[in-house]
């Protein structure tokens, strides 16, 4: 057993877990944060993407013990609580989901992608950057549209914040 101590969605969490516990299982089963999904057993699908210390990672390919000391944000913690995060809003407005299973991972990957591309995104970049996220409904078209819309909305939001 390992004692792990993390900040998850702004909350300090301490627990003793089996060393083999994957971060995704820790989030889902110990903390009840079931928004993060497990879609495959092979580290390919990206349904489990969360942010660890500000970077998108596959939480199914990291031990909870490896993440000890880190700050984790899951889909539940993305919005500040007053409404949807701009990426969530864009997925809603653009119907960026079909069955919804891949959506949490897509949104966490998209948020990370937008943060890493402050210069803005184009369709080719979004499609290339989605390499690690699989939508088995093949609903990529609207996912890409959602991410482009979110990227623009967030750039405008920043512009306003600067002006203010």
């Amino acid at each position: 057993m390992s004692d792990v101590s993390l900040t998850v969605n702004g909350r300090q969490v301490n627990a003793a877990v089996e060393d083999r516990t994957l971060l995704v299982h820790f989030l889902r089963e110990h903390l009840g944060l079931t928004g993060t999904h497990v879609g495959c057993d092979t580290s390919q699908c990206g349904a489990c993407v969360v942010h660890v210390d500000g970077k998108a990672v596959k939480s199914c390919t990291m031990l909870a013990a490896q993440a000890s000391g880190s700050t984790v944000v899951t889909i539940e913690g993305l919005s500040d609580g007053t409404g949807l995060h701009p990426v969530q809003a864009a997925f809603k407005e653009n119907h960026g989901l079909q069955c919804g299973f891949c959506t949490p991972g897509m949104i966490m990957a998209a948020t990370d992608m937008i943060n890493r591309h402050p210069e803005g995104l184009d369709e080719a970049t979004v499609r290339a950057e989605l390499e690690g996220n699989i939508c088995r409904c093949t609903g990529y078209h609207n996912i890409v549209k959602s991410i482009l819309a979110a990227s623009q909305a967030m750039a405008k939001g920043k512009g306003r914040a600067k002006a203010a």
């Binding site: 990206g46 998108a56 596959k58 990957a109 992608m113 690690g132």
Partner: peptide, 9 residues
């Protein structure tokens, strides 16, 4: 290499 999430780790 791999995908963005893999490259972060």
């Amino acid at each position: 290499i791999g995908d963005p999430h893999v490259r972060h780790r």
